[in-house]
Design a protein around this nucleic acid. Structure first.
Length: 271
DNA sequence: AGTGCGGCCTGTCCGC
DNA sequence: TGCGGACAGGCCGCAC
């Protein structure tokens, strides 16, 4: 499942191949994604040149002079560069065909993702307008987080996964960051002691940065059909390890549900 | 405003 | 071996 590190890795992987290149055609085989892929999208993109490839949270932004293509990979999506002779598989929903040959192929078995065309300022779009700071930016710091948590009764994990608090922290890294910070996921965000925001912010940054480094190396060869992100198999310390021994103290890790999300933590190490 | 939760969707795993 | 059902997940959009 694409978390922020994988989306950023995807961005870095495709950018050199499509930046300043012209889109020859767009082929939509399955328009029923999270929101319908409109025919307008293909018409408007045709002939346009990609002027930037950026990212906001887990949204990839392909900018052209006429507008921006907004792509979200949902939880099962991927975006790969393929050659025109590549086999088309069942879940290859959208192709962006470039004039110089490569095809940017959007694949998403569960169709939780989206491919949208936005002509107005993309950052005013409802999907992007209310997003919190980037986790790896200076804007995401202890002072900010503390101020935002004030009075909040929801669990710190839920709070952390809220994209209005900070973008790019999904279930996996929320679990990992809270473990790294030694903070119990179910405690109210507004009740965290002052000093713990520093620890938490540092843990979020650390966990994401580590994943980004691993993702960057394993996904270097982007035309590799293998596709499975290697960072996912990196040493996750709590996620998916409910009932197993804590890697720090050997106590069995607890698994509970917070906000319908699987939550794993160590009762001894996280307070 | 803050909070909680239903729903979207399919691949994978489990038990029978 | 086949089959049904639970589960996983991001995150919108609604209800309270």
């Amino acid at each position: 499942m694409p978390e922020l590190p994988e989306v950023e890795t995807t961005r870095r992987g495709i950018e050199p191949h499509i930046l300043k290149h012209q889109i020859k055609a767009v082929q939509v085989r399955e328009s029923r994604l999270r929101w319908p892929v409109t025919p307008v999208l293909a018409n408007r993109l045709k002939g346009e040149v990609v002027s930037s490839v950026s990212r906001r949270g887990k949204y990839l932004l392909l900018e052209t002079a006429r507008g921006t293509l907004v792509i979200h990979l949902g939880m099962s999506g991927s975006l790969r560069l393929v050659t025109p002779d590549a086999t088309i598989n069942k879940h290859d929903h959208v192709d962006i065909v470039f004039s110089h040959g490569p095809i940017l192929r959007y694949t998403d078995p569960r169709r939780f993702g989206c491919v949208l065309w936005v002509e107005d300022n993309v950052f005013n779009h409802p999907l992007l307008r209310n997003l919190g700071p980037e986790p790896l930016s200076a804007e995401f710091n202890a002072e900010y987080l503390k101020a935002r948590a004030r009075g909040r009764k929801s669990a710190v994990k839920t709070f952390l996964m809220d994209s209005r608090t900070v973008v790019g922290v999904g279930n996996i890294y929320a679990n990992e960051a809270l473990f790294a910070a030694g903070i119990r996921p179910q405690g109210a965000a507004g009740r965290l002691a002052q000093g713990r925001f520093d620890t938490l912010v540092a843990a979020v940054k650390h966990v994401l940065q580590e994943a980004l480094m691993v993702g960057g190396t394993t996904l270097r060869d982007f035309t590799d059909s293998e596709g499975q992100p290697g960072y996912f198999s990196q040493s996750l310390r709590v996620y998916g390890r409910g009932g197993l021994a804590c890697l720090s103290c050997s106590e069995p890790l607890r698994e509970i549900r917070i906000g319908q999300r699987s939550t794993v933590f160590c009762r001894a190490c996280q307070r």
